[in-house]
Simulated assay, not measured.
Amino acid sequence: MKVAVMGAGAVGCYYGGMLARAGHEVVLIARPQHVEAIRRDGLRMETRSFDEPVRLAASSEPEAVQGADLVLFCVKSTDTESAGAQIRPLLSADALVLCLQNGVDNADRLRAVLPGTAVAAAVVYVATEMAGPGHVRHHGRGELVIEPAGHGNNSSQAVAQAFIAAGVPTELSDNVRGALWAKLILNCAYNAVSAIAQLPYGQTVQGVGIQDVMRDVVAECLAVAKAEGVQVQGDAHAAVEKLAASMPSQYSSTAQDLARGKRSEIDYLNGLIVKRGEALGVATPANRVLWALVKLLEGKAR
């Protein structure tokens, strides 16, 4: 496949790099400092099983999506509409756009911007970070859950097979909405706490009272999901308890954003739970406190 990664940060570089390593033609659309390093040295992929440079194309211009069979859409949730509008006139008629983003509504928002384009939501379970220009570090996991979309060689099924062949565990699901909510609950439990403390998951859960706070956050999220009519996949409380053990050294994306003085996606995580709770008459005090504190720190950083 010809693959373009729109918004190639840690997540986009990891999945784009895995596809490139498997022989697909990949271009990363990223910030200039990453583009320069990748063009010079390749993308350094530091994972648990290998550490090597991967040769692929890189650009800082959205025009690089032209001709792509598959677009991995990895921009921040705050930029979904604007980035979608940038690539809209450039997409091939049969391209599949796969949303590899945090939050539960990005695919719906993107479909509104890209009418007539096949857009598929995906749930991403991976711990990654950009360790430097053109250097992605993988801390663990990497599974994808994708909803059916598209046709033929550019269908979700074909894309899933390509990911599996590239060493990325991938499955198709008719209940991606439920899986996205399950991921959202994990993010609501961990992201803000990791960001406020600037600590990795393994250390945050050892804080006095933190696991009780996380249980309160999860309970509120489940109450909002139930009011929304969402069937959340799996046992959310058990998943939250297990996450720190599977990614003990991982800092949340929100923590990484705050450390770099960048705007985070907190409005689409705990903030979304607060907003939907207000609309549905569900109290969300724990989520509200975490959301408000992260917003305060964002303002301080700016």
Rank of each mutant, 00 (worst) to 15 (best):
A68G: 02
K76Y: 12
L28F: 08
H34K: 07
A20N: 00
E46L: 09
G84W: 00
R109A: 13
T47Q: 08
H138F: 06
E61P: 07
V26D: 01
G23P: 08
G23S: 12
V113W: 00
P115T: 06
G103E: 00
G67C: 09
P62V: 07
R109G: 12
V119W: 02
A93M: 09
A68W: 06
A37M: 11
L72W: 01
R109F: 11
A83G: 07
Q86V: 00
R109D: 02
G16A: 09
V71T: 07
T47P: 07
A107D: 12
R31K: 12
S60W: 12
N102W: 02
V65R: 08
Q86A: 11
H34T: 02
A22K: 13
D69S: 15
G116S: 01
K76Q: 10
G134T: 07
L110K: 14
T128P: 08
Y14C: 07
A131P: 08
L70P: 02
P53T: 11
A37P: 01
L72P: 01
S82T: 04
R31F: 03
R55H: 15
A22Y: 00
M18E: 05
S92Q: 13
E129P: 02
N106P: 04
V35A: 04
K76L: 11
Y15P: 04
V26Q: 10
Y125N: 11
V104S: 07
A131G: 14
A58L: 05
V126P: 03
A131N: 13
G42I: 03
R88A: 15
R44Q: 07
V126T: 05
E129K: 14
H139L: 14
L91C: 04
F50I: 07
E36L: 04
S92N: 09
A85K: 12
V113F: 01
A83Y: 02
Y15M: 07
L114W: 05
G140W: 09
C99V: 03
H34L: 00
P32L: 04
Q33R: 15
V71F: 07
V27F: 09
V35F: 01
P53W: 04
V136F: 06
I146P: 01
R141G: 01
V145A: 15
E25T: 15
T128F: 09
V71D: 00
P89R: 11
H34F: 00
A37F: 12
S92D: 09
